[in-house]
Simulated assay, not measured.
Amino acid sequence: QGRPGQGRPGQGRPGQGRPGQRSDDRPRRRREPKPEAPWIPKTILGKKVNSGEITSLEEILEQGGRIQEAGIIKKLLPDLKTEVVDVGIIQKMTSNGQSTRFKAIVAAGNENGYLGIGQGKSKQMRIAIEKANNQALLNVSPIKLGCGSWECRCDKKHSVPFKVRGKGGSVVIEILPAPRGLGLVAGGKIRRLLELAGLKDAYTTAKGSTPTMNSTSKAVLQCLRQTFSQG
């Protein structure tokens, strides 16, 4: 038997944790991300993109093609960045009790004229983000940048070419051209969406329930899509 206060033989001292437990001083091993599987196209459009017959997203839109594979966007826009914009919890009462699901909103953009927003729901947060990421890639649209401000009148692509207006749910957002050097006059999350799209200077006005990020992101994407369709 050991001395009083030392505990039984084979046990650690008080404050040192149990035997076999990882010490706080030891560095923890980080799990390396799994390598992404190579993309195998399944649709006719995907096979054309993979073979090099189609080299731009604008060419697909002009032909009226429908993008059904996220690999098409990754192939045409390799510099695309994805960012989680908002996460939340959905609770629902069922006959078996209360069910909890997670929802995530992800934005994809290359900060040079392309933006897409997607939403995903699942019982696991990781799967919800993966669904939103895939949906954001499928919703990527080209955006026409320019300088529509009468104060600036330069030829550089730093703002929107004209005033655009979009609506998502009860949220109405307007984006107006701004002179170079002003910056983005917008809220935090709206500002980040505009940055991913490639805008550097713009005025924005928002009305409605703007804290609901789902409606706000839809309104922003509808605004920016009009620059390409109307321009």
Results as ranks from 00 to 15, higher is better:
71 G>M: 04
103 K>H: 13
78 P>C: 04
18 R>C: 04
66 R>K: 14
72 I>S: 00
97 G>D: 04
31 R>I: 13
70 A>L: 06
52 G>H: 03
103 K>A: 15
58 E>H: 08
50 N>M: 14
73 I>N: 01
20 G>A: 08
106 V>P: 00
63 Q>T: 09
76 L>A: 01
42 K>P: 00
73 I>L: 11
64 G>I: 05
31 R>Q: 15
66 R>V: 13
75 K>C: 07
30 R>M: 06
77 L>G: 03
60 I>M: 03
92 K>R: 15
58 E>F: 10
80 L>D: 01
94 T>F: 07
36 E>I: 12
86 D>M: 05
91 Q>G: 03
49 V>N: 01
47 K>C: 06
92 K>E: 15
17 G>A: 08
75 K>W: 02
79 D>H: 12
69 E>R: 02
19 P>G: 06
71 G>N: 05
30 R>K: 11
25 D>W: 08
77 L>D: 02
83 E>N: 08
91 Q>C: 03
109 G>I: 03
18 R>E: 06
104 A>H: 02
68 Q>F: 11
61 L>C: 03
17 G>H: 11
50 N>T: 14
26 R>E: 13
77 L>M: 07
59 E>S: 14
19 P>K: 05
27 P>S: 08
98 Q>Y: 03
30 R>C: 03
29 R>W: 04
72 I>T: 07
65 G>F: 10
36 E>R: 13
17 G>N: 08
85 V>M: 15
77 L>Y: 01
108 A>N: 04
38 P>Y: 03
40 I>H: 15
35 P>K: 10
84 V>G: 09
36 E>F: 05
76 L>R: 10
70 A>N: 04
17 G>D: 09
75 K>Y: 03
31 R>C: 05
77 L>P: 02
53 E>G: 07
